[in-house]
């Protein structure tokens, strides 16, 4: 008799609990997922070429290498002794505030500046031509093409490298 009462009591509790569980699980729910990803390709690799030096004029061409992953803007500048005068010319090349000549077009990977930057050396002192002991050094910079919110490209020549880890 006693055992039967205990059994009935357990049964009653189980029934009460099961009633509560069924009401909690009765709500309709559902879920869906979606995912998207895009790989970032960075890393311009550029080289400077001077295919021809003639008539005291440097012909500067800058190439964005085939293995480069990013289009770039480029600019160049020449240094020489103060006794020399350098005359720059070339379609698409314009001087900036820092004395560099910027090429107006974007150079895509595998492409070169379509127009040469011509740097003519003038005021060569007598005797220097014969000795050939002078240097004119050309330096250039390339910066990755950036895009504003509207997708318009621009160059930031003040970009400075920094770390990226958190």
């Amino acid at each position: 008799m006693k055992r039967r009462n205990i059994f009935l009591a357990i049964l009653a509790v189980a029934l009460i609990l099961s009633v509560g569980l069924s009401s909690a699980a009765a709500y309709f729910t559902t879920s869906v997922k979606a995912s998207g990803s895009v790989m970032i390709d960075l890393g311009p690799h550029t080289t400077i070429e001077e295919p021809d030096v003639s008539r005291w004029t440097k012909h500067v061409v800058i190439k964005n290498q085939d293995d480069s992953k990013q289009p770039v803007y480029v600019r160049a500048k020449a240094f020489a002794g103060s006794e020399f005068t350098l005359e720059y010319s070339g379609e698409g090349w314009t001087i900036d505030d820092e004395g560099f000549y910027r090429y107006s077009e974007i150079i895509a990977p595998g492409e070169t500046t379509a127009n040469e930057l011509l740097i003519k050396i003038e005021n060569i002192p007598e005797g220097v031509q014969e000795r050939g002991d002078f240097n004119v050094t050309v330096v250039y910079e390339a910066t990755p093409v950036l895009y504003d919110e509207a997708g318009e490209p621009y160059a930031d020549w003040n970009l400075k490298a920094e770390g990226g880890d958190l």
Partner: peptide
């Protein structure tokens, strides 16, 4: 990210990295 270089100062931190956006709607 275009000015974030690795310690070697030659390679980009985010070059070859993929960004993901996952959406779960309940």
């Amino acid at each position: 990210i275009v000015k974030m270089l690795n310690d070697d100062q030659k390679s980009y931190v985010y070059d070859g990295i993929t960004f993901y956006i996952d959406v779960v709607a309940d």
